[in-house]
Design a protein around this nucleic acid. Structure first.
Lengths: 347, 347
DNA sequence: GTGAAAGCGCTAACAC
DNA sequence: GTGTTAGCGCTTTCAC
């Protein structure tokens, strides 16, 4: 009900001065500013973001486009973005594609295009050419966190290297029978991350002259339950059993650990497990992992966008985000070979 | 760049007709509507939500206020809200308090109060009187999902009954040495939920004439790691060991299971565990739980708000949301007593 | 340091 | 079914 106008009337000032005072512009005398603020408070003034948005062309809101919400990585990035936005006084509009086929069309055609936001952070999505065109068309800054895609700059770890590092860790421990739980991300939304981690896996094997077995590469869909099922599948296969598993995410690794425990096997005695992410629960569970910092990635991405909105600089590409190996008790050297095998060797 | 005006010019129609056509109002001829839409498409027209918002007083956005993001329950409710909002063409603005002390002030004074949203869904928060006043002041509909608080209507399960049901299940199995992992929600934001579940626990014990032991009520902060630590604490205490544990959330129950496994004890042989929530991972892990449906609660809450925004009806209070007991392998009868005890009994 | 006036892009009476 | 006319509540030149 109360607008800037009423405050103007009440203070005997003009609308413009009130507006300036409310925004804390330096061109207003301190006395005036204080008086305006008091009056605003007293009258219960509530600014209208629509009006301000219309006048300035800025919404002071940033959109975040996520494939699905229910995933550790996305939540952590979201937290980082949110923290940064809060500090800057921006609001966060959440666009959830909601999994496979979760009408991207709607998001691209209706929501995002409404000039609701000043910029967009996209998590782990690869765009089709039409969508890229759309993004280009609205002129605001866009940044992808999490998986590289053609035509859009992105921020995140080098997933191929991460996969390589994880696998190399297992190899260094002496493993040669190594499986991989990866997968099409079940949300079907970004092929890049799972693919690259798998490539790293295969490259590491190749570098050690270990043959990759197709039947030891299974799909865990990047979720706990998927990791569990994938591990069960690996354990139930005829023939030799892998002595180590590289899971492309910690959540899948947790599932794998659950499956292993349920089968009465021990970790790392029977099987070593390594994940990727640095999920906090890994500490308690003793999961060795390739740790990254999605929260920080969210923070950094947001910083870049905010800087651009304020007209300071523009960055076209970024250093890969850092990751490191955290050794815990889920990985160890493989069991010494069976007696007969050993004898074979000795001969 | 392109506004409704340009379309008017290009089609030779008036601004108003274009506006109507764009919104698909029935008072416009089909021919006109189609022509307008084509032209809009051709010119790459992007509507301005600020302008529409200013003119109508509606933003077509709904705010969701969460204590923290990183929690299964909140994420599920969020998913439900989001699905409903998408269907209705509304955007979702996420206000994250970000844990204890996560400047509520900012949210209340700056963001929400900017008329950014038409309505507000609040997850599990209890407001202080000042905040309630604020909420009242801005006239839009508010609904709380998850924990009852004074002065605001809410939707969710009866947490006291849930706690009672969980504990009763353990008692029915024959347990009398029952511990509780609950806690101040570490985000410090809503006392109601943990308190009520604990009350239910105590009431169930009382109903069975079992004495509640203070040292068997421990704080798990509603997170996995907290559940783990709480369980460790319980196991390390001198004196008799509980034969069953009621964890106030599944995430804490998972942590408890991890701790139990790590101590070399068996479930439910040595200790039974029951949780609350119906977390999907509980299926794989075999966790008995009091299942609720936060997704649906999100959907329902949003429906109520949208209905009110469209002027159809207003509901002041709701039936408690349903829950049910899901029996899985984490609970069972306690071990028969020790021989000597049995002898004692026999005598 | 402050004010007057124009206008951001749309919607909503009200006419016709 | 379509056009005309006012605003919605702010910001922003441009004056003074």
């Amino acid at each position: 009900m109360t607008g800037i106008q009423e405050i103007a009337r009440a203070t005997g000032l003009s609308k413009s001065t009130v507006s300036r005072a409310l925004r804390g512009l330096p061109s207003v005398s301190e006395t005036t500013t204080r008086s305006v603020q008091r009056t605003a408070e007293r009258l219960g003034y509530i600014p209208s973001s629509s009006a301000a948005g219309l006048a300035t062309g800025r919404t002071r809101a940033i959109g975040v486009l996520v494939p699905v919400i229910d995933r550790w990585f996305y939540v952590k990035v979201l937290e980082g973005i949110d923290a940064q936005l809060r500090a800057a006084g921006y609001d966060l509009i959440l666009y959830n594609l909601g999994g496979r086929g979760g009408d991207r069309e709607r998001v691209f055609h209706r929501s995002i295009l409404r000039k609701r936001v000043d910029a967009l952070v996209v998590l782990c999505l690869v765009f089709d050419p039409g969508e890229r065109e759309q993004l280009q068309a609205m002129e605001y800054p866009v940044i992808v966190v999490g998986g590289p895609g053609p035509g859009v700059r992105h921020m995140g770890i080098d997933d191929r290297k991460a996969g390589f590092a994880a696998t190399s860790h297992l190899i260094e421990l002496g493993h040669t029978a190594i499986a991989h739980i990866g997968g099409e991300d079940e949300s079907g939304l970004n092929a890049a991350v799972p693919l690259e981690r798998r490539e790293g896996f295969i490259a590491a094997l190749a570098a050690a002259r270990i043959e990759a077995r197709d039947e030891w590469i299974v799909n865990g869909g990047f979720v706990f339950e998927g990791g569990y099922r994938a591990m069960k599948e690996l354990l139930s296969k005829p023939g030799p059993r892998p002595t180590a598993v590289f899971a492309a995410s910690d959540e899948m690794a947790f599932g794998a650990l659950a499956a292993i425990a349920q089968e009465g096997l021990s970790v790392p005695g029977d099987i070593s497990v390594i994940g990727v992410d640095g999920h906090q629960n890994g500490e308690v569970l003793g999961l060795t992992t390739i740790r990254q910092n999605p929260y920080q990635q969210g923070v950094d991405a947001t910083r870049v966008l905010l800087a651009e909105l304020e007209g300071r600089g523009h960055t076209e590409s970024f250093e890969p985000a850092p990751f490191d190996l955290v050794r815990r008790r889920s990985t160890g050297a493989p069991r010494p070979l069976d007696p007969e095998d050993s004898l074979d060797r000795v001969r």
